[in-house]
Amino acid sequence: MKNKLSFVIAVLFLLSSISTITYADGKQDNKQENKYEIPNSVLNIAKENTYPNPTQDLPYLQPSDLAKELIDSSEVKIENPDLIRILNESSISTTPLAIGYRATIYLGQWPLSYESTETGTNWEYKKINTNFVDNRGGKAPVQIKYNQEAQKHIKGGLTAKIQGPEDVKKMMLIKAAEKTGLPLSFETIIGAGTKKDQVYNVPSKRLGYLYGYAPAVSEKGKVTYGEVYLVLKGSKKSLVVKNVTHQGIGAWIPVQDHVSFGFIASETPR
């Protein structure tokens, strides 16, 4: 009987250990999923912002049937929204009787696609505001709140010169927004007089500093370039990409309508 009881206890202990390991792994996976989770020190100011930023719509276009057929015919991936827009606006009429008909049309050199290799966040990308309270002569704590003293225009951009920069920025914006789930824009403005009700207490005999920062995403990856040709052979049509090259690139993309706060209570001026 004792042997049976010992066996049951051992089995229960083993199951408990497995359950604990699974739970730990689950927490680790959850942590990985929350890599881009907004920390508590970062607040959304979209409603309070005195400058109404336009909503940033991702420049993704759904290819038309013709555009999809042409894109699928290419051996090189094509994601450029502007090139897709041109293909969407095109029409090609062919006939099965066009035997021997051949044409090659040069559409230009394009940044065709962007492959993301690293995406990170800097919640204190640029300092935009400082609120200050002097409570050195006080006998009780006083409160300090965020009040944007001057309008700030936060700009992101590419970290190096590259061919077709606007096309590249659009593709990088799409990939970074998809990976992070954050509202991203290469430009965002925080209006003067923007306020938030979050309260920070400054103890007596202290100086209170409330710093505001604009957060941003750091995006790094590789752009594929190529010369694009539309090839027509009888009733068949396809895209051919020649002289394919690759170039590494990085970018800073601000997080729209968000402010990261840092609070310090100091005995001496900073």
Results as ranks from 00 to 15, higher is better:
186 F>L: 06
86 I>L: 15
112 L>E: 07
244 V>K: 02
70 L>P: 05
34 N>S: 13
162 I>P: 01
78 I>A: 09
236 K>V: 05
51 Y>P: 07
134 D>M: 00
97 L>Y: 06
143 Q>R: 06
230 L>H: 06
229 Y>T: 09
156 G>C: 03
118 E>H: 11
80 N>T: 12
262 G>E: 10
147 N>H: 08
64 S>Q: 07
239 L>Y: 01
123 W>M: 02
40 N>P: 01
222 K>V: 15
118 E>I: 00
235 S>I: 07
205 K>T: 10
246 H>W: 04
270 R>D: 05
30 N>A: 14
198 Q>L: 10
133 V>L: 12
70 L>C: 02
123 W>K: 03
219 E>F: 02
21 I>T: 13
157 G>S: 06
203 P>L: 05
233 K>A: 14
149 E>H: 11
259 V>M: 12
96 P>Y: 13
9 I>P: 00
119 T>N: 08
224 T>Q: 04
176 A>S: 08
82 D>S: 09
259 V>E: 08
270 R>N: 11
156 G>P: 02
96 P>A: 15
235 S>M: 08
59 P>I: 10
253 I>T: 07
86 I>V: 15
256 Q>K: 14
218 S>G: 11
31 K>V: 11
115 E>S: 14
206 R>V: 01
50 T>N: 14
161 K>G: 14
123 W>V: 03
199 V>Q: 12
7 F>V: 11
123 W>A: 05
88 N>S: 13
157 G>P: 05
158 L>D: 06
84 I>K: 02
250 G>Q: 06
63 P>M: 05
130 T>G: 03
164 G>M: 04
19 S>E: 04
40 N>D: 14
70 L>E: 01
262 G>C: 03
268 T>G: 04
140 A>R: 06
17 S>K: 10
204 S>K: 10
252 W>M: 09
54 P>R: 12
7 F>E: 14
269 P>E: 12
257 D>W: 04
32 Q>V: 05
65 D>Y: 09
24 A>D: 00
174 I>S: 04
131 N>A: 01
96 P>E: 14
212 G>F: 07
140 A>K: 06
260 S>D: 12
65 D>L: 15
175 K>L: 05
12 L>H: 08
205 K>W: 01
249 I>L: 03
64 S>M: 09
